[in-house]
């Protein structure tokens, strides 16, 4: 009886300690779980580009924020893979991309505190002429799910990569405007589809925009070329607000956002 109770006590203490030591201001990174017998050569996310977004509105609504003021960071990681087996005699290649959108908190010229919020994120890549877009990617159904698949299928020869991305839906409640075509990979995460979406009681405001959030995408294609480069554009935008409930937004509209781009050139060999 006593032993059982002791176990309960120890477990309780451990839970309290763990809960109190966690830092909830940073969202956990999506975790990629790939099978050990993956049929692809995968380059993991060991290259990152920091896209720093400064206040650079061409037609600023608010003038109390200094130029060069950082309003947010988009930390983008890139990984690539090549299937071990060819598909219909062609290489089966792909990119894995994930970004951590981290809004900034700062003082304006008058010493008042301002809060950055994530507004928009876009990945785009024009596929090389020798590449043919494959599959149903990008798979980015992030609404209401804790986990979404990044599975990629490669046809009859069995070239495939599969796995899951664990992503707390709390941080992924965004609108997906994917537009993959034969030659263009384009995926947009529009945190604010229109100005009318901005309401003080909006769930999205409270849950997502002012916190660190993660987004992820994949793109796959086949090609007969063994060695070439691809260029991925990353475009991130942040707005600013006087309060974390979304009130006092300085630049909520598309044309008035602070934005920055980053380019990845990834080599396939």
């Amino acid at each position: 009886m006593l032993k059982k109770f002791q176990k309960v006590i120890i477990a309780t203490i451990l839970i309290i300690v763990v809960l109190c030591d966690s830092n909830f201001t940073y969202a956990a990174a999506p975790e990629i779980k790939l099978p050990s017998d993956s049929a692809a050569t995968i380059t993991n996310f060991t290259v990152r580009r920091t896209v720093t977004v400064t206040y650079n509105c061409s037609q600023p609504i608010g003038t109390d924020i200094s130029r060069n003021q950082v309003v947010g960071y988009c930390y983008t990681y890139i990984g690539s893979y090549r299937a071990k087996n060819k598909v219909d005699g062609k290489y089966f290649d792909g990119l894995l991309i994930k970004s951590n959108m981290v809004p900034s908190t700062f003082y304006n010229k008058n010493g008042q505190k301002k809060y950055g919020f994530s507004q928009y994120l876009q990945y785009s890549m024009t596929l090389n002429k020798h590449c043919t877009y494959q599959g149903n990617t990008p798979i980015n159904d992030t609404s209401g799910s804790d986990e979404y698949s990044i599975g990629i299928t490669g046809g009859s020869d069995g070239a495939s990569v599969s796995g899951t991305v664990n992503c707390n839906s709390k941080y992924c409640d965004v609108t997906d405007l994917s537009n993959p075509t034969k030659n263009l990979f384009k995926i947009e995460y529009d945190y604010i589809p229109s100005a009318s979406d901005w309401k003080s009681n909006s769930t999205r405001n409270k849950k997502v925009l002012f916190a660190s959030t993660w987004q992820m995408a994949t793109c796959t294609w086949t090609t007969s070329y063994s060695s070439y480069n691809v260029v991925l554009d990353v475009y991130a935008k942040f707005g600013t607000s006087s309060a974390k409930n979304g009130s006092g937004m300085t630049m909520p509209l598309y044309n008035y956002s602070s934005k920055a781009t980053g380019i990845f050139i990834n080599s396939f060999r």
Binding site: T46, V47, R49, T52, V70
Partner: peptide, 23 residues
């Protein structure tokens, strides 16, 4: 994990010592 990091400081950011140190 060792991460190769590009873009920490760029010509588009502020040029003062403060801007560099904050980056």
């Amino acid at each position: 994990t060792a991460i190769s990091v590009y873009g920490t400081y760029t010509s588009t950011l502020g040029k003062s010592q403060k801007d560099v140190c904050e980056a």
